[in-house]
Amino acid sequence: MEAYELCYVVSLSLELAGAIILLINFLGNTKKIVILTYFPGSNVAERKNDEIILKKNKLQERARNVYMNRTAFIYIIIGYISGIWSNMGKTNKFAIALMIGIVCFVLTMAGNAISKKIAEKKFEKDIAISFDSVKEIVDIPISKEEIDGLF
């Protein structure tokens, strides 16, 4: 194997490994990932009778992020693998750059629209989850009833 071929293999391998590392955070049960990412920042949730209500709009946004990351990984894998057999040929570089821009825009818009539709379909309603299922990641303010019970 020539040095330039080895460089090509290492280059694609590093790019794919980076994509896989980014994807690892979004593999697995989508609902679980969405719930875990639902409480960024303060990690404070409001509780009603040992249940936490997760609002559908925020669930859909978190799910869309998961699906967009998965879509990005698929695009990257297909792009890198197809790049192995590709050749720009004699086409004008400006024309190639313009076509890349157009196709990139279309794929980005399609990925976003599809991710949003899937998220809206999967998370059509608010979800009630038990406090016990997230007690390690969520803080619950003490309720008035609990305060009254202390005295």
Rank of each mutant, 00 (worst) to 15 (best):
M1G: 15
A3V: 09
C7T: 13
S13H: 14
E15M: 12
G18F: 05
I21P: 00
L22S: 10
F26H: 03
F26I: 00
K31R: 11
K31V: 08
I33K: 04
T37I: 07
P40E: 09
G41N: 12
V44N: 12
V44H: 05
E46T: 06
E46I: 03
K48Y: 02
N49M: 08
K55T: 06
K56T: 01
N57W: 10
L59G: 00
L59C: 07
R62D: 01
A63W: 00
N65P: 04
V66P: 03
Y67K: 00
R70V: 05
I74R: 03
I76Q: 02
I78H: 10
I78S: 06
I78P: 01
S82A: 14
G83V: 06
I84H: 08
K90V: 12
F94A: 15
A95M: 14
I96P: 05
I102T: 04
I102R: 11
I102E: 12
V103S: 08
V103H: 04
F105I: 13
F105N: 13
V106A: 15
V106L: 13
L107Q: 09
M109F: 02
I114T: 07
K122I: 04
K122E: 11
I127G: 01
A128M: 14
A128Y: 07
D132T: 13
D132Y: 09
S133N: 10
K135E: 12
K135F: 02
D139Y: 10
P141E: 06
I142M: 14
S143R: 02
S143W: 00
K144Y: 11
K144R: 13
I147E: 01
I147D: 09
F151L: 05
